[in-house]
Design a binder for these strands. Structure first.
Lengths: 64, 64
DNA sequence: ACTTTATGTCTACTATATTTTACATTTAAT
DNA sequence: ATTAAATGTAAAATATAGTAGACATAAAGT
């Protein structure tokens, strides 16, 4: 399923997928795939995203 | 660096590396490597571990 | 209309997470 | 002292995360 929390947090920082990708050092396609919900990023990448967006792991990646 | 929070949480549930590995569906070496701090698991695996150990992502995998 | 920026999607390639098998060491129990 | 369970570690193989390049579309600006 889509990661809308990530999408929203990115929008809240006014960053494009490209800009976020550069900030965390991955490709734009990777960010797009994560938001789309295709696959599971590594925890290292999740942490990098959290720090750029100033959110916690639980806020962006927890799921029930 | 070692993930001692994970090691402690596992001990708190009285589970061996093997038992935790089986509970989340990975090999014992994978759990060992994560505790040892060698590499980065996927978020999916982190979530599975959290649910078995009844901890949040932030409790087990956040790092400053 | 035209250009630019942001996004969605696909394919083929590369890097790395995870498995399997195996062996050594430690720890706890008997 | 011996046995069994738990852990640490390593090499080779497999699955999948992530890259690079390309093309299409939609929205926004000029």
């Amino acid at each position: 399923m889509k990661n809308l929390k990530l999408k929203a947090a990115r929008a809240g920082k006014d960053l494009s997928q490209q800009a976020l990708a550069e900030a965390v050092g991955v490709s734009r396609q990777t960010i797009n795939a994560i938001e789309k919900g295709d696959y599971n990023p590594t925890i290292k990448l999740c942490l990098a995203i959290c720090k750029v967006l100033e959110k916690t792991l639980d806020e962006l990646f927890w799921e029930d």
